[in-house]
Every structure is written in C-alpha cells, then in structure tokens.
C-alpha cells in the first residue's frame, strides 16, 4: 500500500476465477465464523496487493511515479489526470501462445485501475509518461508557483 496515501480504487482483477474463489473463501469464512472458528479469516481475507506496484519519488522540480508493468506495451496502458488525481488504467491480456501446452503459469492476465491523489500542485500540461523495459515512469512537473523561490535580501 502507498503509505500515507489514500487508495480510491482497488486493483480490479477481472479473472472471474479469482473473483469466484474469493467469494468462495468469504463464504467459507462466514461459515467458520458462524461455528465460532475465527482461524481462517486472516489468511483467506488477506487482500491481493494492488497491481501494478508503484513507487513515488519527489525531485526538486517534479514528482515521479514509477510502476512495474512487465509485459505491457504502449497501447495497453493509459495515464490521465482526473479530479486532482493521477489515474492509471490498463490490461495485460492473456499471452498464452496458441497451440502450446501450459506447464507453469505464474503471470496471470490482469485488468487494473489505480487512482492516486496528486502529491502536490502540478503543471497539468507538462505531465509525461514513458514505458521502458516494463517500467512505466510518469513525470508530474511541479507547478511553477509551487517551486521553491530564492528571495533576494536587499540592504534596507
């Protein structure tokens, strides 16, 4: 979780199987609780970490948001600034090659939407994003009047 940040949106995992499994877990939890057995809740209720994971940095002139999105190409992700928040949306589609048998599958397809409140006043027009080696970097330049200013001290 982004500590100190409010998360508006949870990662949306569209995999129906996951959702079904989650509902099943909840139902089992409730059943156990009805019987007075609290033990399983902690494990089964643990939330999936939001995807993609993000780091936020502050430089002198800008805020930098980095997200690890391996497998996503340019067209798979959209970045926008809406209602004083940075919004990242996208989808990593299933990339099982046709005609291949699956032995191991650890890279699940995922659809996501994450919304982060802007960390400060920014220059909306100058926001930029680059995708390189599976890392999305969004640069949010600080608003000009929010930059530190040196004030000359004059002899009175």
């Amino acid at each position: 979780m982004l500590t100190g940040w409010r998360e508006f949106d949870e990662t949306l995992r569209t995999l129906d199987t996951l959702r079904t499994l989650d509902q099943l877990h909840r139902r089992i939890d409730r059943a156990f609780e009805d019987w007075g057995v609290p033990g399983t809740s902690e494990i089964t209720r643990r939330q999936a970490a939001p995807w993609p994971p993000m780091n936020v940095f502050e430089t002198k002139e800008a805020f930098l948001v980095r997200a690890e999105v391996p497998g996503l190409a340019e067209g798979d992700v959209s970045v926008s600034v809406e209602d004083e928040a940075l919004v990242i949306r996208g989808e990593r589609k299933s990339d099982v090659p046709a005609g291949y048998k699956v032995h191991v599958r650890e890279r699940a397809p995922v659809a996501f939407a994450r919304k982060l409140p802007l960390p400060g006043r920014i220059d909306f027009e100058a926001v930029s994003a680059t995708l390189r080696d599976g890392v999305l970097t969004i640069t949010l330049p600080k608003a000009k009047d929010a930059l530190p200013r040196q004030i000359a001290v004059k002899v009175g």
């Binding site: 099982v96 090659p97 032995h103 080696d133 890392v135």
Partner: peptide, 18 residues
C-alpha cells in the same frame, strides 16, 4: 515465469521489469 510447450519447443517467459 510461464512455461509452455508445443511439438517443436519449450518456451519460458520470465518477468524481469526494469
């Protein structure tokens, strides 16, 4: 990682972001 196989090859796909 993902590991796939067809008649001709094994295919390993690993996530190495960054």
């Amino acid at each position: 990682v993902d590991v796939f196989e067809n008649a001709d090859e094994l295919l390993i796909v690993a996530e190495v972001p960054g």
